[in-house]
Design a protein around this nucleic acid. Structure first.
Length: 563
RNA sequence: GUCCCAGUAGCUCAGUUGGAUAGAGCAACAGCCUUCUAAGCUGUGGGCCGAGGGUUCGAAUCCUUCCUGGGACGCCA
C-alpha cells in the first residue's frame, strides 16, 4: 500500500492536464508536524499556470479529493494536507504484515539477476582491526538486503594474500622471526614482524628493495617462499574464521588475490592484444588520459604485478564464473581512484559489463581524528571489542534480568548487535570517530534499544495467551498506534531505498523510529485489557515484532525474544 | 599543487527528490515502576545549519568563492 501514490492519483484526477502522476508523487511530502496531517501537497508550482495564489489553489482542490483511505483533506495556506483514515489503513497494514510475515518488504527487483559482493577482504598476517569491521558488516547487510530484493547473491571474500607486503613479511621473518612464537600466536607475531619491518626500514631503506625482491621470488614460484606464504595464510584464515563466527558472517568464495596469480598473464596478454599497454619508466601502464584519470599501473619495472592487475583479472574471472548482473565492491573510500581506474581499463578492453560494476565506499574509523595506521601498529582489535561488548551485555543481564534462561546466547546477541548497529546506523560514507564507550552504550539510539523493544513486545504476546484472528480486525484509531502503523508502512520503502543507495542506515534509522514509536505507544496504551480492540492491539504488537525482527535480520543482528 | 569526501545543539549524529516552526540520542536538570521487561517513558534548557555571494515564490539541502578537517594522486594494498 503506497499512500503517496494513492494521494497522487487522487490529485491526478484533477491536475492530470498540468502534472504527470510521477511529478505529483515527487511533490508530495511528509509534513514535519502531525497537525499538518499525514501527507502534504504544496501548491506553489501551480500558481503560475493557474494565475492564482497557492493558497487559493489548495483551498479549491480540497473539495475534489475523495478516497476511502483518506479521511479528509484540509487546505492550510499553500499546502493541501491529507489526513489518513486510521481505522482502515491500520486494518490493512496489520493484515498485510501478519499475512506476509517475514516476507513483508520483500520485492522481486532482482529476480533472475546475480549480484556479486566483494567485502571484508582482510589482509593475511594482519590482525582483524576495527577498520575491517565496516567492510564486513556493510557487505553482510547489503548481501541480505539484495537477497530480500530477489537477487542471487555471491559473497566474495577477496582475501589480501598477495603483494609486496608478503615480501616484507618474508624478509622480516627470515631476519627476526621465531618459528615457535609464530606457531603459538600467528597473527600477533606476524603483525609485530610487519610493524618492526617498517620501523627498521626507516633507518635502513634498502630493506624496501629486499622486500620487493622477496615478493618477486614468491611470485616466480620459489619453493621456500611459497611454504612460508602457505603457512602464514592458513594460520591467518583460521583466526579470521573465529571473528566471522562471532559476527555470524559467511562467504561463498574465499578466492583471494593469490588465486589470480596464474590468470594474470592472460589479462596482460589481452591488454597487449588490444594495444592498451604502454611502457613508462620501465613499467607497463594503461593510459587513461581520455577518461581524465592518471594511468593505471599494470606491471612493475621488475615484472611483478600490482593490485590493479589482480582486480582486473578477478573481474574477468567473476564475469566468466558467475555471469553477474551487478558487481559490488565494499571497499574504503580511499580506494576510489583505484576502482575508477580498474573500471576504466575494463571498459577500454571493450567489456560493456564494466558499467555494472560499482564501488560502494565507506569512511574510516578514525582515532583522534586520524586514520589508524596498520604500519605503525596502531590498531584496535575487533575481536577484543566484540568480547568486551558481550561481557558488558552479560553484566547488564545479571543486574536487570538475572533469571533469564540462556544468558550467554542473549549476551552474545546483544553485545554483537550493539557493535553492528553502531556501525550501520551511520551513513556509510562518513568517517566514524572510534569511541569504545559510545559503541558499548546500550541505551538511546542503539542496537540493544531495538532488541529490547522487540523483547518487550514478545513478552506481551506471551502473556496474552491467545491467538490473533486476522479475519476480524476492526482497525485502530488512536494516534499512538497510528504512528507505529505509519513507521511499519514505511519499512518496504526503506528496504528498496537501502538497496538503491547501498545504504543500510536507511533501515537502521527506520528501526529506531519504529522502536521509539512503539515504546511511546507502550507507555500510553494498556495493551492487555479485554475490550473490543484487544485483537487489533495484539496484531499491532505482533506486527512490530515481525518488522523489527526482519529489519534486524537484514542488518545481520539477532533478535532475542527475552533479554 | 590537482581531485574526492565532510563541516548542523557542549558531544555523537538525523534531516528522500529544495518546502510549513531544523530533529534524535548522549551529557545536565526535573519527574514516572502495587498495572504488559525502567536496556523504557515524559518534561526543561540548549542552534547566525563553517563564512560570503548567487539561483528560487521558498535553501541546512542546488551553483560559486573562501575557511577548516580528512583522504587520494605510478612501481603499497
Amino acid at each position: 500500500m503506497d499512500m503517496k501514490n494513492i494521494y497522487a492519483q487522487s490529485l491526478y484526477k484533477e491536475l492530470g492536464a498540468f502534472l504527470s502522476l510521477s511529478e505529483l508523487e515527487k511533490l508530495i511530502e511528509t509534513p514535519t508536524y502531525d497537525t499538518h496531517g499525514d501527507l502534504a501537497f504544496p501548491c506553489f508550482v501551480l500558481a503560475k499556470q493557474f494565475k492564482k495564489s497557492p493558497a487559493l489553489i489548495a483551498s479549491e482542490l480540497s473539495a475534489t479529493i475523495n478516497h476511502p483511505l483518506i479521511e479528509r483533506v484540509k487546505a492550510d495556506g499553500p499546502y493541501l494536507n491529507a489526513f489518513f483514515n486510521k481505522k482502515s489503513i491500520s486494518e490493512q497494514v496489520l493484515k498485510h504484515i501478519l499475512t506476509d510475515q517475514q516476507q513483508y518488504g520483500s520485492t522481486h527487483i532482482g529476480k533472475g539477476k546475480t549480484m556479486t559482493i566483494d567485502f571484508s577482504s582482510p589482509n593475511i598476517a594482519k590482525p582483524f582491526s576495527m577498520g575491517h569491521l565496516r567492510s564486513t558488516v556493510i557487505g553482510q547487510t547489503l548481501s541480505l538486503i539484495a537477497e530480500k530484493c530477489g537477487f542471487d547473491v555471491v559473497k566474495i571474500n577477496h582475501i589480501g594474500d598477495w603483494g609486496t607486503q608478503f615480501g616484507k613479511l618474508i624478509v622480516a621473518y627470515k631476519k627476526w622471526g621465531d618459528k615457535a612464537r609464530v606457531r603459538a600466536q600467528p597473527i600477533m607475531e606476524l603483525f609485530e614482524l610487519y610493524v618492526r619491518f617498517h620501523q627498521e626500514a626507516e633507518r635502513h631503506p634498502e630493506l624496501e628493495q629486499e622486500a620487493r625482491d622477496a615478493f618477486k621470488q614468491l611470485e616466480d614460484g620459489d619453493e621456500a617462499s611459497i611454504q612460508l606464504w602457505t603457512w602464514f595464510r592458513d594460520a591467518s584464515l583460521q583466526e579470521f574464521k573465529r571473528i566471522y563466527d562471532l559476527l555470524g558472517v559467511s562467504f561463498d568464495s574465499y578466492h583471494g588475490e593469490a588465486f589470480y596469480n596464474d590468470k594474470m598473464a592472460d589479462t596482460i596478454q589481452e591488454l597487449d592484444n588490444k594495444n592498451l599497454l604502454t611502457e613508462s619508466d620501465g613499467a607497463e601502464v594503461v593510459e587513461l588520459t581520455n577518461e581524465e584519470l592518471p594511468p593505471c599501473l599494470i606491471k612493475k619495472s621488475d615484472g611483478a604485478t600490482l593490485y590493479a592487475t589482480r582486480d582486473i583479472t578477478a573481474a574477468r574471472y567473476r564475469k566468466k564464473t558467475y555471469d553477474f548482473d551487478k558487481m559490488v565492491y565494499v571497499v574504503g573510500h580511499e580506494q576510489r581512484l583505484h576502482f575508477q581506474q580498474v573500471f576504466a581499463v575494463l571498459n577500454k578492453m571493450g567489456y560493456d559489463w564494466a558499467r555494472n560494476m560499482v564501488h560502494v565506499p565507506f569512511g574510516f574509523i578514525l582515532k583522534d581524528g586520524k586514520k589508524m595506521s596498520t604500519r605503525k601498529g596502531k590498531v584496535v582489535l575487533l575481536e577484543e571489542v566484540l568480547k568486551e561488548a558481550i561481557q558488558l551485555a552479560k553484566k547488564n543481564i545479571e543486574t536487570k534480568n538475572p533469571n533469564l534462561a540462556n544468558k550467554d546466547d542473549v549476551a552474545h546477541a546483544v553485545g554483537v548487535g550493539a557493535v553492528i548497529f553502531h556501525d550501520l546506523k551511520h551513513e556509510r560514507n562518513h568517517n566514524i570517530e572510534f569511541d569504545l564507550e559510545d559503541m558499548l552504550t546500550f541505551e538511546g539510539s542503539t542496537g540493544p534499544y531495538v532488541q529490547y523493544t522487540h523483547a518487550r513486545a514478545c513478552s506481551i504476546l506471551r502473556k496474552a495467551k491467545r491467538d490473533i484472528d486476522i479475519e476480524s480486525f476492526s482497525g485502530l484509531t488512536d494516534s499512538y498506534s497510528f504512528t507505529v502503523i505509519k513507521k511499519m508502512l514505511d519499512f518496504p520503502h526503506a528496504v528498496t531505498r537501502a538497496l538503491k543507495d547501498y545504504e543500510a542506515s536507511h533501515i537502521a534509522k527506520l528501526l529506531l523510529e519504529l522502536a521509539r514509536a512503539f515504546n511511546q505507544y507502550y507507555s500510553q496504551v494498556k495493551i492487555l485489557q479485554h475490550d473490543s480492540e484487544l485483537n487489533d492491539r495484539l496484531a499491532l504488537v505482533q506486527s512490530v515484532t515481525i518488522v523489527l525482527r526482519e529489519g534486524m535480520r537484514l542488518l545481520g543482528m539477532k533478535a532475542p525474544e527475552e533479554m
